[in-house]
């Protein structure tokens, strides 16, 4: 099977879907002539022309709204945010327009749009460029929120997101674009709303998504050497959340750690813990622990940034704690 980067996987998904359906177009800053700020849209302008690969001014609110209107009028826009930090300027269109349109129109106007771009911290980009917005976005009914960690997942999920008749928020990772993985040559789709168990084990569950899924897999492989077998549930889609996959894993392992990139308060982990306590209370042998970013804006200094971020060491410590092996 070919091994390609996460970036190439996304590029393939865009190219395939644009070839398949001429209602699909991509719009955003630097997506065309510049080939994409992170080169995800590389070569698409040349292949599909400037009507379908549209360089926008720096106007997140405006071009997101243009995407919503185009979707209401029958097109299938892919709106690229250079990063999700900048999408805060457009959050009104995601939350008040895209997520509400079907409901407030009584089912008449759906908005088949994808809002995509890198989310979360990279390296030393400082407070304004290092934020993970999963929980903000997953809070909103009326949209789907997807967060793939591997090239395989990124491609299959982006293709499904583009074909979905609903607004889909697609969270990529700046640190993921260069990561590599196996991606089959033949076309495939990954359904939204279904988790993937990335490692099987019976001692403890890690529930996670996105970039943190890679950390979880690394942790599982490392702990296997100590004869601790971790079940890694990669949610892939955060809204709607595959709660059955979480329950199945926790019922098997009876212990869980929730690992996420964002902050603690009202984070994804808080919700996962709530699901677990309601449905798996009697299955649990230990309180569920959470691993997340420190409750501070991201610092620039290398050492501080490292201790602010969730990582493998913190996750291993949490697992040993829930297993009373600390």
């Amino acid at each position: 099977m070919p091994i390609i980067t996460y970036r190439e996987a996304l590029n393939q998904a865009l190219r395939e879907e644009m070839s398949r359906d001429d209602r699909v177009f991509i719009m955003g800053e630097e997506v065309g002539v510049y080939n994409g700020a992170y080169k995800v849209s590389k070569g698409l302008l040349e292949e599909f022309g400037e009507n379908r690969v549209v360089d926008s001014p720096i106007a997140e609110l405006g071009f997101s709204g243009i995407g919503v209107g185009a979707a209401m009028a029958g097109l299938r826009p892919v709106i690229e945010f250079m990063t999700w930090n900048f999408a805060l300027l457009a959050i009104d269109q995601v939350v008040n327009s895209a997520a509400k349109m079907l409901y407030m129109s009584g089912g008449q106007f759906n908005v088949p749009i994808v809002f995509r771009g890198p989310n979360g911290a990279a390296l030393q980009l400082g407070a304004q460029h290092s934020q993970a917005f999963e929980s903000w976005l997953a809070h909103i009914p009326g949209i789907k929120v997807v967060s793939p960690g591997t090239p395989y997942d990124a491609k299959g999920l982006l293709k499904s997101a583009i074909r979905d008749d609903n607004p889909v928020v697609f969270l990529e990772g700046e640190m993921l674009y260069n990561t590599k993985g196996e991606v089959p040559e033949a076309e495939y789709l990954i359904p939204l709303g279904k988790a993937d168990v990335k490692r099987e084990g019976s001692d403890c569950s890690i529930i996670t998504s996105g970039k943190m899924a890679l950390v979880a897999v690394q942790v599982a492989d490392q702990l296997a050497k100590e004869d601790i077998h971790v079940d890694v549930v990669d949610l892939l889609t955060i809204r709607p959340m595959d709660v059955e996959a979480i329950y199945a894993s926790v019922r098997k392992t009876q212990r869980a750690v929730v690992l996420e990139e964002g902050w603690e308060l009202c984070g994804i982990g808080a919700q996962v813990v709530d699901f677990i306590q309601r449905e798996c209370f009697d299955d649990l042998d230990a309180p569920v622990l959470r691993v997340h970013q420190a409750d501070v804006p991201m610092p620039y200094a290398k050492g501080l940034e490292k201790i602010a971020k969730p990582d493998a060491a913190k996750t291993i410590a949490a697992i040993k704690q829930v297993m009373y092996r600390a």
């Binding site: 609110l61 405006g62 071009f63 997101s64 709204g65 243009i66 995407g67 919503v68 209107g69 185009a70 979707a71 209401m72 009028a73 029958g74 097109l75 826009p77 009104d92 269109q93 008040n96 327009s97």
Partner: peptide, 14 residues
């Protein structure tokens, strides 16, 4: 103001 870019998007689709 929110619907003004949405209107532009409808124009874009046309």
């Amino acid at each position: 103001g929110s619907h003004v870019p949405v209107a532009a998007g409808v124009g874009f689709a046309i």
